[in-house]
Simulated scan of single mutants.
Amino acid sequence: MEPSKLPLIAVVGPTGTGKSDLAIALARTLDGEIVNSDALQFYRGMDIGTAKLAPEERGGIDHHLLDIMEVTEEASVAQFQTQARTCFEQIRSRGRVPVLVGGSGLYVRAALDIIDFPPTDPAVRQRLEAEVERHGEAPLRSRLAAVDPISAGRKLDLRRTIRAVEVYEISGRAFSSFMPERRYFQPAIQIGLNLDRTLLHGRLAARVHRMDEQGLETEVRGLIPAGLRTGRTSSRAIGYQQYLDFIDGKLTRESAIEATVIATRKFARRQITWFTADDRVTWLDPTEDGIIDRALEHIQQGTIHS
Results as ranks from 00 to 15, higher is better:
residue 2 E to M: 09
residue 8 L to S: 00
residue 10 A to I: 11
residue 15 T to K: 07
residue 23 A to V: 09
residue 29 T to W: 03
residue 30 L to R: 00
residue 31 D to H: 09
residue 32 G to F: 06
residue 40 L to Y: 05
residue 40 L to C: 07
residue 41 Q to S: 06
residue 42 F to A: 08
residue 63 H to E: 05
residue 63 H to Q: 04
residue 66 L to K: 08
residue 73 E to W: 07
residue 74 E to V: 12
residue 76 S to L: 11
residue 77 V to R: 10
residue 83 Q to K: 13
residue 84 A to W: 04
residue 90 Q to W: 10
residue 96 R to L: 04
residue 96 R to S: 01
residue 96 R to I: 02
residue 98 P to V: 01
residue 98 P to E: 00
residue 101 V to C: 08
residue 103 G to D: 02
residue 105 G to V: 05
residue 108 V to P: 06
residue 110 A to D: 00
residue 113 D to C: 11
residue 115 I to D: 02
residue 120 T to W: 15
residue 120 T to D: 14
residue 121 D to L: 12
residue 123 A to G: 00
residue 127 R to T: 15
residue 129 E to I: 15
residue 136 G to N: 01
residue 173 R to Q: 11
residue 176 S to E: 05
residue 184 Y to S: 07
residue 187 P to F: 09
residue 190 Q to E: 12
residue 197 R to V: 06
residue 208 V to S: 00
residue 213 E to L: 14
residue 214 Q to D: 10
residue 217 E to K: 11
residue 218 T to P: 02
residue 226 A to T: 12
residue 228 L to E: 03
residue 234 S to E: 01
residue 243 Y to M: 09
residue 245 D to S: 14
residue 247 I to H: 00
residue 253 R to T: 12
residue 261 V to C: 04
residue 262 I to C: 03
residue 265 R to D: 06
residue 278 D to Q: 08
residue 281 V to C: 08
residue 283 W to Y: 07
residue 304 I to N: 15
residue 305 H to C: 10
residue 305 H to T: 13
